[in-house]
Design a protein around this nucleic acid. Structure first.
Length: 272
DNA sequence: CAAGATTCCTGGTGGC
DNA sequence: TGCCACCAGGAATCTT
């Protein structure tokens, strides 16, 4: 479900919920696996640990405790929410019972998510995190870096910016949106994107992600923040899921095709 | 080695 | 209306 803005919104929501730094009283598993088996024995050792903070790296959430961390990824359909007494739902896979009386539920119908322990002292060595590229909103994601990273790449620019080794957090929706805003055709070979276009692209990736965070994320399907509220950035999509509808700039019908196995949307007049 | 294809799983929806 | 093929925001693991 979520790309960087949505994960950031969840992170902020969880941070508020966990601001009083409760202990994890019990981790209740409703099943043994999501996409991968969950390391339940190691996770169980965090029962009794005190939660300190919640971080985000790429599309991962990292819950830090005084005894180690939890690495969580929402996949496509994962959500965290506070589940009151009796508020169990289908596909609730994990309950975190907290010392402040709250119960956090992880629900993920499609089960593409991840829930693991992580060694906080050596996060950079974690196999999920070690190969990740820069954060798009950090200063080390800039035109010089990206131009260099894209040079010689034969794949399309859209597939390239969705590659988490190039830059993290950009998924299918925001890739289409950022390319539209930069005037770059999504099927252009990554290595052929000009320096000027790369500068624009970096700027527009940062801009669209920032706008989406400010809007509370995009709610497609059933994305909700941890308080159960929808985001509203989906109302600001300029190309995503708008096949055949008029371009907001020139009224040419928006096209769609498949790149890297994912639906892609663009305006053939505004993007080149 | 890079790039493309396939796979995991369930639910919603568009088309007939 | 009912059914069913198809598609979905991710990423690891294959095959080419």
């Amino acid at each position: 479900m979520p790309e960087l803005p949505e994960v950031e919104i969840v992170k902020r929501g969880l941070s508020e919920i966990l601001v009083d730094q409760p202990k994890i009283v019990r981790i209740e598993f409703m099943r043994k696996d999501l996409r991968d088996p969950m390391p339940m024995a190691r996770l169980k050792k965090l029962e009794g640990a005190q939660i300190l903070t919640v971080h985000r790296r790429a599309k991962y959430l990292i819950i830090e405790t005084d005894r180690g961390g939890i690495l969580s990824h929402l996949g496509m359909t994962g959500t965290w929410r506070v589940a009151g007494k009796g508020e169990e739902r289908d596909h609730d896979h994990i309950y975190l019972h907290l010392s402040n009386g709250l119960r956090l539920a992880y629900r993920d119908p499609r089960r593409f998510g991840i829930f693991e322990d992580i060694d906080l002292e050596h996060q950079e060595k974690n196999k999920r995190l070690s190969a990740l590229g820069p954060e798009p909103l950090d200063d080390d994601f800039n035109a010089g870096y990206l131009k260099n990273k894209l040079s010689e790449k034969q794949t399309s620019i859209k597939v390239a910016i969705m590659n988490q080794e190039v830059v993290v957090g950009v998924g299918n929706i925001y890739a289409s949106e950022a390319l539209f805003r930069s005037g770059i055709r999504p099927d252009k070979k990554a290595g052929r994107v000009s320096k000027t276009q790369v500068q624009l692209l970096v700027q527009e990736i940062k801009r669209v992600l920032t706008l989406a965070i400010e809007a509370g994320g995009s709610s497609i399907s059933d994305f909700k923040n941890s308080s159960g509220q929808s985001g509203y950035f989906q109302n600001n999509f300029q190309v995503y899921d708008r096949k055949g509808e008029p371009c907001v700039v020139c009224a040419t019908p928006i096209r769609s095709s498949v790149l890297g196995g994912r639906s892609t949307f663009w305006c053939r007049k505004c993007q080149s």
